[in-house]
Design a protein around this nucleic acid. Structure first.
Lengths: 139, 139
DNA sequence: GTATCTGCAAAACATTTGCAATTCT
DNA sequence: AGAATTGCAAATGTTTTGCAGATAC
């Protein structure tokens, strides 16, 4: 992300300071954070940041195509600024979300006649390599 | 579903009356209902049925492999007793959830080494045929 | 008779909303 | 000034939990 402000402007989003910080945070992580995680981290350097603004901003980012909302976690929405096609894998033990490449064709599933596809998401769950080989008791 | 009680017993689930009714309801619909929808309909013929029991039962069904929980709706979990591999499409206008066949290979995505896959779900969103051709204003 | 199941009420939790104060142009 | 943005507090809606009574084996 060379110029975050220009990137926001290009998507028709006014580059306010909170929005810039949220964009930079999201573009610079592979954690697929939730709104709560983003707020918890950013409020350290931006103490006035409210949860409401984080929620508003993430919804706005999703609406204009800057980020996507993942429904891979049972309790909270997770967000990803990588808009290239890829799948997600959530480890049920540690909760981390991993990206994985899609076999070509999956991103354009063959829907019956008449359906107008706008979004597709391949979500997997199981154990990540670290948790699969761990000797700790699993949830 | 020829013998629902035997089906439950086969999965190690005691066939109580509420569980039987919930199983029959779920197996007899293509609506992919939420817990609330199931309760709203079943309470008409089973007035003592509580929401808690519906939630408990659906969680139990998912745990033993009788049904699966879909995270395709923004607000509430939806449930499906069809355990055969297939994808789901949610219409953002009418909220209905449709099944569609999966191109072979999708149900076994190629994960990187070491990941232990337990569940995979392909969720799509867009407009269903009825809503796509409707002249009503869309949400 | 003991473990399991049910249901009510209350709690927990993520997210949204109303609205006033602030900020940007 | 005027429009957009922010942030607080309260509300919303789904799901979970504690616990007492009912039920099944």
């Amino acid at each position: 992300m060379s110029d975050p402000a220009a990137f926001l402007a290009k998507h028709g989003v006014r580059p306010s300071y909170p929005r810039l910080k949220i964009l930079e945070y999201l573009a610079g992580t592979k954690e697929h954070p939730s709104a709560e995680m983003i707020h918890r981290d950013l409020v350290l350097s931006l103490p006035t940041l409210s949860r409401t603004t984080v929620y508003n901003t993430l919804r706005l980012f999703a609406a204009v195509g800057i980020a996507r909302e993942l429904r891979i976690d049972e309790t909270e929405a997770r967000f990803d600024a990588d808009m290239r096609p890829h799948g997600h894998f959530r480890c049920r033990a540690c909760g981390r979300v991993f990206d994985f490449p899609l076999t070509p064709g999956i991103e354009q599933p063959a829907l019956p006649e008449g359906f107008k596809l706008e979004r597709a998401e391949l979500s997997c769950e199981g154990l990540c390599p670290a948790c699969a080989t761990s000797s700790l008791p699993l949830p």
